[in-house]
Design a protein around this nucleic acid. Structure first.
Lengths: 241, 241
DNA sequence: GTACTTATAGTATTTTTTACTTTAAGTATT
DNA sequence: AATACTTAAAGTAAAAAATACTATAAGTAC
């Protein structure tokens, strides 16, 4: 038991110890990008409840574990992916969201280049793979709701921060970048104007190399200049497409 | 006890029931506006821990209470304020953020016209009052961290959504609106251009009345046209200053 | 009526966005 | 090696938006 009931002198309805009964979990929404499609990483549950269903990458938090550590750990435990920057986006706390007991879950999301990360299912995950965001299976718990909120956050993030670059290989062409943003935001850009805008932002480092193995004129390759972006950000620059 | 330990078949370090030991709380960051200054509503704690310290408006969530209900309830319980739209902004989950036990807290924030809401302390709140955001007392727990994150969220929100109107009385002049935004965002607008921009947005309803009791030419009063805003939003309009 | 203060309208210039055109540079085909 | 084809990359003109500034109107205070 945690506290003597006399500790909190106030008007609680229950003995103070009866408040320390919540389960806490984290759920990761990992977005990827491949062949012009936005993907999300899911795992198949190998245990009850929802055994056999696909679900977001999540689990209960240890009593002595920081929230953000829990998110990173569960991602590695279930899929083998590590060193991925996870960003918290929302806490889901409906009384009935978990069929067995009161579990509040905190959602994290990330963007990665799905080519670079080959998930390997382990622990209770029977399998793990990328799903096209427009072709999802039925999900466990309220994971569909969480995913929708994650997509909303993604769009907001992508429009106001240069997060999108994380989905591309380190060296990319301007057209590849444009196609990525078109997929993420759901509308088209004028090619010429997109180039101009992004180049004038001064956050891309032009390389002397060109794309290879294309059956037409190869385009110049660029790198995202993170150092430069951080510097510009300090001066008040804000990315916006 | 919740589950038989056999229920979860997987590789948990502890018996499953030992995971259901979290305390959960909500904390409300209520922003107000008065005389060109941004205020935040705080309560003085009448019980341990941090007895006597000022703190955000928050408390433990009941085991059978939805997160958002908890936020609204605690606000009314401690200050008497109700029917205030609260928006979740972040969950704070460091292991050591609460000195006594593991408590994860979820932050909510809101904007109100501090003239309209006179907080009355009750329950364990010894007193409740508005503090200027630049002149804060020492706060209980990690509430200073939470408040800073709340301010960050506020600035983001204010710049991209017409939330700021909630801080003004229902009928206001354009200059009042401009001064509010200058206080919120921390920089000045050109008077003429500000008028033009906001009027062209078509989200203000011009009234036939004028400001009274001023010692100079009185300005026309306006109302925020929420209906119109919702309609425009649906068409893809996005507020931005 | 005069001085003063703020409201409100207007205008001219610059900057940015948008839509579109042209030219260049490569591959593939005959 | 000429031609067709594809995409890259640069340029340009018109429209729209942002900015800086001016002028006038409408009230109060004395």
């Amino acid at each position: 038991m945690k506290f003597p009931n006399s500790y909190y002198i106030s008007d609680y309805k229950l003995p103070i110890n009866d408040y320390f009964v919540f389960g806490l979990s984290v759920d990761c929404v990992i977005f990827g990008y491949q062949e012009g499609e936005i993907k999300v990483l899911l795992v198949q549950r190998g245990l009850e409840p929802f055994k056999g269903n696909w679900a977001l990458i999540g689990d209960l938090v240890e009593p002595k574990q920081n929230l953000c550590d829990a998110a990173n750990n569960v991602l590695e435990k279930l899929t083998g992916l590590k060193n991925i920057y996870l960003k918290q986006f929302f806490a889901f706390g409906s009384v009935d969201r978990h069929p067995l007991d009161r579990v509040v879950t905190v959602g994290y999301f990330s963007l990665v280049n799905s080519m670079d990360y080959k998930p390997i299912a382990s622990s209770w995950a029977k399998s793990a793979r990328w799903f096209n965001i427009n072709d999802l299976p039925e999900l466990a718990f309220d994971h569909h709701t969480i995913l929708l909120k994650g997509i909303e956050t993604l769009k907001d993030e992508v429009r106001h921060k240069p997060t999108g670059f994380e989905l591309l290989p380190p060296k990319f062409t301007l057209l590849e970048l444009q196609l990525l943003y078109e997929a993420l935001l759901g509308y088209k850009f004028d090619k010429s104007n997109f180039r101009k805008k992004i180049i004038e932002m001064n956050i891309l480092k032009p390389l002397k190399e060109a794309k290879e193995n294309v059956s037409h004129r190869p385009a110049q390759l660029f790198e995202f200049d993170e150092k430069r972006y951080r510097a510009l950000e300090k001066e008040g620059f804000s990315f916006e497409l």
